[in-house]
Computed example of a mutant assay.
Amino acid sequence: MRTVMSEFLTTHEVADLLRIKVRKVYDLASRGKIPCSRATGKLLFPKDAVHRWLANNGTTPPAADEQQSLPNVLLGSHDPLLEWALRASGCGIATFFDGSLDGVMRFLDGAGMASAMHIYNRKSGEWNIPCVRDKLHHRNVALMEWAKRDRGIILSEACTRSVTHIADVAGLTLVPRQPGAGSQQLFEQLLDDAGIGESDCAFVTPERTESDAVLPLLEHKADASFGLPSVAEQYKLRFVPVIQERVDIAVDRKAWFEPAWQHFLRFCGSDTFANKTATTEGYDFRSFGTIHYNAD
């Protein structure tokens, strides 16, 4: 094992070799700029490949001290109010919402400048911070609170069952979300806590956004989904509150000071934003902007 491992360099050894900070090594690796391997779950660098790479690139690594600008795209979890705010602000930030976990992985690949998430850690009882510490600890990010919001069971008009708790969905046909969605991960945890297994319910095809998740209810293809009160109110469907979650946005700290993000933050301080959030069911913005994690 020692012979095999001697063929690889650690992150700190690469930093010493290149005379750069460890954070810059992680940045180069995440952008595919330096040969590396994650096969063991730990970031390792093939010694021979690194020396060849260094010889081909001169005495200093290209762009080691100059981080490339990330695209103005907000990744991760879909939140209807966040989507509205980005459009209404005119900040120019595009969106690619396909789930909290999907957003984290795309953020690692440099596909966007920020990623929204609501990832619950059952062991610690925390929202988002454990995931950021685990997945993004080497990235130059700040984790900003967007909002706390209620989440619960949305029921179709055709469902006549009395539902007051998560355990009451046993036997119903449910609308799941895609595996990378934070809401799906949370729903599965809550079902497990209530003693409900996969075989205790029927499931239709997964939906990818909060808004799309109610469509099978409107079409009478499913009885319930795990969603937001604002969406239930929009379609005049019954809503049973289950939990309050916290939605945060991991933002690249360099992108934080770019015009697009600053424009968006200014809009979030406007009367238009305040009026909209005050009249949208199920949101709590009193701690908006709180920084829950800041990279060292």
Rank of each mutant, 00 (worst) to 15 (best):
K42T: 15
T40I: 13
Q67E: 11
R52T: 12
D65H: 06
A64C: 06
N72A: 14
A49L: 12
K42A: 15
A39L: 13
N57W: 01
W53L: 03
N72R: 10
P71K: 03
P46A: 06
S37W: 09
A64F: 04
T40G: 14
K42I: 15
P46W: 02
S37Y: 07
D65E: 08
A63C: 11
K47I: 08
S37T: 07
S69K: 09
L54N: 01
S69C: 09
A63H: 10
A49K: 02
L54A: 05
H51K: 00
N72M: 10
A64R: 02
T40R: 08
T59M: 13
S37C: 10
E66I: 11
P71W: 03
R38Y: 13
T40Q: 14
K42Q: 15
K42W: 14
N57H: 09
G41I: 06
K42L: 15
N57E: 07
W53V: 01
L43N: 06
L70A: 04
T40H: 12
R52D: 15
D65V: 00
F45W: 02
K42C: 15
N56A: 15
L44D: 03
T59V: 13
V50K: 01
P71E: 05
W53T: 02
D48F: 04
L74P: 00
Q68N: 12
T59F: 13
V73D: 00
N72D: 11
A49H: 07
K47R: 11
Q68A: 15
D48M: 07
T40S: 14
N57C: 02
D65Y: 05
L44C: 05
P61S: 10
G41R: 02
P61L: 07
L44S: 09
S69D: 09
L70P: 00
L43Y: 05
L54H: 03
D48I: 06
Q67S: 11
N57A: 05
S69E: 09
K47F: 07
A63Y: 11
P61Q: 05
N72P: 05
G58C: 03
A55L: 10
L43E: 14
S69G: 10
D65R: 01
D48S: 04
